[in-house]
Design a binder for these strands. Structure first.
Lengths: 178, 178
DNA sequence: ACCATTGATTCGTTCATTGAACCTATGAGG
DNA sequence: CCTCATAGGTTCAATGAACGAATCAATGGT
């Protein structure tokens, strides 16, 4: 199938976690998926927001597309331009990212950088992305993201600035790009 | 503090997920934590179960200890021998690993390799590690792990064999070691 | 003709991973 | 006392991946 070059797979492991990490466990990969869930779709937006080397970004986008986590789609013909959109399989990584982010905040002693709420009731999400109030798993598209108290209110790059306004996950990001 | 050498951190990222990945995002690290949650504690048991290079294992154990995810403790004096035990901070990574494993099984088309149940009622855990019957999030120590239908019933190494018997998470693994 | 934008590829340097070999401390057996 | 076995590592050369700067390609605007 895709890459799976030497040393990239956990050969001896008979484990779903290991299989998952073979796909999304490389450096930068989960941050690309995170940005995609936040609504980032364009090569240049990933680039400036992540501060990732261009070659690595190209490799990750290709690998994620090959694995069906992102989908490459042409959004304009006349200078041919492509964007990368999360698929259902990619959106299904939300609970993992939510759990990881929550662990990071609770155990690395940070201020809250982003707040995630159930859009229909306003309740803040639990560790796995569930709504404690409604006692249901919140679909990714119904998650509202707001800036938390610890987040820089005047970030340098336009993508970070666009991500300051409260927005639903998956909602495509509009970049001023000027 | 510990490592954080050049290129190991996601410098521009103001994000709890990125902070978390700086600690547990390197190759092998989450599998070491997984094994620790399964009850593996000894250098040699990690080694044979993971098939990890010795130098990398030593580096990861040291880093995880420095970050307070594992605790190094002497379990016998006379030939001085140490074991690595998960701390609360390490156990708090369970939701992340649970979410990742679930994604791996559901989206990479695998048979179920391990089954996790609420020990007090026997109900299989839901998508986000909760008990559907008791309607609570199950503490890590109350999770019962059993082999699933897809798991090899006659594995080669003694650690995998010891992990075949139903057991609670965190419960120390007894290795026949002969 | 020239410059700007978007989405990349190429390339030399640096860093991390790998696997084999070696080292240390101790105890057991002969 | 000598040797082997065990547990827990360290050292090293070779390979692979990441980094960042430079370049390229297609198009459109002025």
């Amino acid at each position: 199938m895709g890459g799976m070059a030497l040393g990239k797979d956990y050969a001896t492991q008979e484990c779903s976690i290991a299989r998952a990490l073979e796909i999304v466990g490389e450096r930068w990969t989960l941050l690309v998926v995170r940005d995609a869930l936040y609504g980032v779709r364009r090569y240049n937006d990933f680039l400036v927001h992540l501060g990732i080397p261009r070659a690595v970004l190209a490799a990750r986008l290709q690998a994620l597309t090959a694995e069906g986590i992102l989908e490459k789609r042409r959004y304009q013909q006349s200078p041919p331009r492509d964007e990368y959109v999360v698929t259902d399989r990619g959106a299904a990584l939300w609970p993992t990212l939510r759990a990881l982010g929550r662990w990071g905040r609770e155990h690395l002693g940070e201020e809250q950088l982003r707040v995630f709420r159930h859009v229909s009731c306003g309740t803040e999400l639990g560790s796995y992305g569930e709504c404690p109030h409604c006692a249901t798993v919140v679909p990714v598209a119904d998650v509202l993201m707001e800036p938390g108290p610890g987040l820089d209110p005047e970030p340098a790059d336009p993508v970070s600035r666009a991500l300051l306004t409260p927005r639903r996950l998956l909602q495509p990001l509009e970049t001023p790009s000027a």
